[in-house]
Design a protein around this nucleic acid. Sequence first.
DNA 1: CGAGTCGTTGAGGGACGTCAAGTGTAGTGG
DNA 2: CCACTACACTTGACGTCCCTCAACGACTCG
Lengths: 234, 234
Amino acid sequence: MDGFQCARKIPPCKYVDVCCLSTGSTCQLGEGLSKQHFASLMGIIRTRGTYEPGERIFKIEDDFLSLFVVQSGIVKIETVSQEGDNLVEGFYFQGNLIGLEAVGDRKYRYDAVALERTRLCEIPFAQLESLCSFIPRLQHRLLMLMGERIRQTNDVLLQGRHVCTEKKLLRFFQMLREKGQAERVHLPMSKTDIASYLGVRPESLSRALYKLKRNGHIQICPTTKEILLLSKRW
Amino acid sequence: MDGFQCARKIPPCKYVDVCCLSTGSTCQLGEGLSKQHFASLMGIIRTRGTYEPGERIFKIEDDFLSLFVVQSGIVKIETVSQEGDNLVEGFYFQGNLIGLEAVGDRKYRYDAVALERTRLCEIPFAQLESLCSFIPRLQHRLLMLMGERIRQTNDVLLQGRHVCTEKKLLRFFQMLREKGQAERVHLPMSKTDIASYLGVRPESLSRALYKLKRNGHIQICPTTKEILLLSKRW
DNA sequence: CGAGTCGTTGAGGGACGTCAAGTGTAGTGG
DNA sequence: CCACTACACTTGACGTCCCTCAACGACTCG
């Protein structure tokens, strides 16, 4: 289809990596491929139009057909708890890969919503799998990205125990600062979403936030929705 | 090597599936393979000797070379927190696959310790990867198992929020009952390990345990280290 | 304007962590 | 066989973090 068009329009595979919940690593799916193999990969990647804030990319129970790579903007992944309230799984930024958690499943189990103006690339998974059979290096990269994802989730799960809300929040900010390049951290997501992501109530988040401010760890710019990190390490 | 020997001695790939932290699914790595391809898979699988209780299968910083499948017994996977105390990642039973979290990494980031007399099969990962390139179906199964693992870890992470210790404990017991076939749940691991796995302190675990007993949800047999589940659903 | 959502702040309570003491058991060495 | 130690586990007392409920202001959208 328009795969090659996409390959021409976007930086070549620059932003094809894996999402990071905690670490800042950027493993690129196309890394180490020959020119020919790289072209094959680009051949199956399709551009998706621009999504406006609040627009949904896929929703729970949609058939899982593709992975997505964030070209620009931010995507929120969330699902619903057994009790019925929202659970934010993560925020995905430029270069992050979305959908690995659906591999091997027939349907998505999460909603994906754009938080800002977002551009995406789509990687049809069946085609990617076929391509992996012909390109061992690509298969290796995909397995690597999935392993990386398992490690990251495990880290959040294990290292996040017995950590108070303030520390969680600081770590969250530091992760965002590592993802973006700016010193100031922009927070396009709602406080409620952040609270859900961190596993605390919005009220607790609010209190922790202003406690960090009082103690001189951060500065808050309510107008621009920005945070300035003052402490280098928690 | 002794791959075919292994294939003869153990039930053919019956127990080659993925670990389950929460669900009871058993996805088999060799499922759907032709007789010939299945034989190829068996050809790279090696038996490992029997491990005695407390014996270590691999440790942090060992080179990652193989996945392991539990043939019988129980394996505990743990690591160390930034503060220096033990963090139990999970317990792996008959049929569970160990090591997926190391895929794409050079070294293991966890310790694996046998809790009971344990028999293992070893799957050299480099050979498995090569084989996947030749057998699309096997590649598909491996990707599926990794996706499954991501989903399970994500579930524990997301659905485990705002759950009190008693519920966590009940869920843990129910998971064990689904893994084993018996009505009575055997607990070969220490209470301290269970507490670490659930993310609470041993004292809290102890209290929750006896609260469940008082409320008639479980019966405790201290001599046999067994639990009898009385409530079907929490 | 009213309705709804988000965010903040206060008051109160509950679950869990912390500290401490005590028991039981296994392992060691005399 | 008996100290002696070490460790796992239990139980109590107490503190603290965070959840809950409630009220309120700011804001958006109809």
